[in-house]
Structure formats: C-alpha cells, structure tokens
Simulated assay, not measured.
Amino acid sequence: MADVHRLPTPVTQVWDWQLRAACRRVDSDVFFHPANERGPAAAARDADAKKICAACPVIGACRDHALAVREPYGVWGGLTTDERNALLRRRGLRPVAT
C-alpha cells in the first residue's frame, strides 16, 4: 500500500493533472502486473505502458506524484517500481519496500 501521509491536500489544482493523463482511456492492467508475472511477459507489459506514458502530456506530474508517495506498484510517469526506487536512491531518499 502506498504511504499516503505524504499526499498533498486534495484540492483540484493539485489533482487536476490526472484528468489529462493518457492512461485514463487505457485498461489499468497495462500498468500493473498480475500475480507471478515475470520475464518477457512483464517486460512486454512494462514496454507497452511506457509507450503510453511517453506520449502523455502529464508524465512529469505523474512521475512526481509516484516518487512523492512512494507508489509501490505499477508504471507511473514512465517508470517501473524498480526504476523509481533507483531514482529515489540516487536522490538519497528511502525507496519503496516491495
């Protein structure tokens, strides 16, 4: 579960970016792996998700959100959980416990 205590105050200006997200029209299964998915299947699903993210007008806001709240699952802002954790470590911050 995401650590929600770091979430900003729920005001429209803070969350409005989600209304413009490219993923709003895509099945969430593209961004979150099913139980026991590994190897080529996981890599292919992540690649499909990242293609959607690459064309998203709010990729930066999505990535910032995922890093701020330490989203533990899925592709957010074009980054997998492992990629987000690596970025957090480079910034000297605690990664997500998965």
Rank of each mutant, 00 (worst) to 15 (best):
D82C: 00
V4M: 15
R25P: 01
W76C: 03
V14I: 08
D48N: 10
W17G: 02
V4Y: 13
D82F: 02
A47M: 02
L93R: 15
G77M: 00
A61S: 13
V96S: 13
P8V: 07
L87V: 11
D27K: 05
K50L: 02
G77Q: 00
Y73I: 08
G74C: 00
L7I: 09
L93Q: 14
C23K: 02
G77T: 02
E71G: 03
W76E: 01
T9Y: 07
I59H: 06
L19R: 15
C53I: 06
E71K: 01
L79C: 08
V26E: 12
Y73A: 08
V30L: 10
V30G: 01
P72S: 06
Q13K: 14
I52K: 03
D64R: 10
R90F: 05
R20L: 13
L79G: 05
K51H: 01
R89D: 05
F31S: 03
L67A: 07
T9F: 04
L87K: 11
T9L: 14
N36D: 15
A41I: 05
V69T: 13
R89Y: 00
G77S: 02
D29R: 10
Y73M: 09
E71D: 09
R94F: 06
A86G: 12
P57V: 08
Q18D: 09
V69D: 04
V4N: 13
R70H: 13
V14C: 03
A2E: 14
P95K: 07
L79R: 04
R25V: 13
A42C: 02
D27T: 03
W17C: 04
D82H: 06
A47Q: 11
V30M: 06
I52R: 01
H65C: 08
V75I: 15
R24T: 14
L67R: 06
P95E: 11
P40W: 01
D3G: 04
A61T: 07
D48T: 12
L93Y: 04
W76A: 01
A49C: 06
K51A: 14
T9V: 15
R89V: 13
L67P: 08
R45P: 06
N85I: 07
H65Q: 11
V11S: 13
R91K: 14
P34I: 04
P40I: 10
G74P: 09
A86T: 12
K50Y: 00
A66E: 03
D64M: 01
R24C: 06
D3E: 13
P57R: 02
D29L: 09
K50C: 07
G74V: 04
T12I: 15
T98D: 13
G77H: 00
E83K: 03
R6I: 03
F31W: 00
